[in-house]
């Protein structure tokens, strides 16, 4: 298939699935900052191979293959602590993540919006501040006059509460539908 004909469909799919692709990579590479590079490498790899893409195929399944390869490549080369995880385990986790349906993902995302809304403003602000990545956990902890470990656990408690809220909200939505 000539390149000039397949590119628009590819771009449309890429743009439509950017978020899911990023979330997939970041789920496998939760260490802050690591997902960014791998995400961009994946996009480039997809762009280079776009002539292989057929609109009849599910784009995301095709893109996940690229992303998975980039993640594994990153883990082999980088100084990431994730290199201590075995490839088998990572592939198992990746397969689990790929099995998630878009509908379920969308439900979770909607639930996350609702749960963030319900959150106490100061908790949400702390979460947002730490996730922006413009300050290190250590810097934020020093400013808050607590240890980085305390802040880390505090963030985890917030994540814990959010995950529980998401599950509860999704289950409630499922019941009503």
């Amino acid at each position: 298939m000539p390149e000039t004909e397949d590119s628009p469909a590819f771009v449309v799919e890429l743009v439509a699935n950017t978020r899911r692709l990023y979330v997939y990579i970041s789920t496998l590479l939760p260490v802050p900052g690591e997902a960014e590079d791998v995400f961009q490498q994946t996009c480039l790899a997809l762009w280079r191979k776009r002539h292989l893409y057929s609109p009849e195929r599910p784009f995301l399944a095709w893109a996940y293959g690229f992303a998975r390869n980039e993640v594994l490549r990153h883990m082999r080369n980088a100084r990431s602590p994730l290199r201590y995880l075995s490839q088998d385990l990572l592939e198992e986790i990746a397969s689990r993540e790929e099995a998630a349906t878009p509908v379920a993902e969308e439900a979770r995302r909607t639930a996350l919006d609702a749960c963030l809304e319900q959150m106490i403003a100061t908790q949400r602000a702390l979460l947002q501040r730490c996730y922006q990545g413009t300050e290190s956990i250590k810097d934020v902890a020093v400013e808050m006059r607590i240890s980085p470990a305390a802040l880390t656990m505090r963030l985890q408690r917030l994540r814990h509460a959010l995950v529980k809220c998401i599950e509860r909200t999704v289950a409630a939505t499922e019941q009503t539908t």
């Binding site: 978020r19 990023y22 970041s26 789920t27 939760p30 997902a35 996730y131 990545g133 985890q156 994540r159």
Partner: peptide, 14 residues
């Protein structure tokens, strides 16, 4: 947990 972490990174990370 990591999925939520990823979603929050997507929303907020610079």
């Amino acid at each position: 947990f990591t999925r939520l972490h990823a979603e929050l990174q997507w929303r907020w990370r610079q």
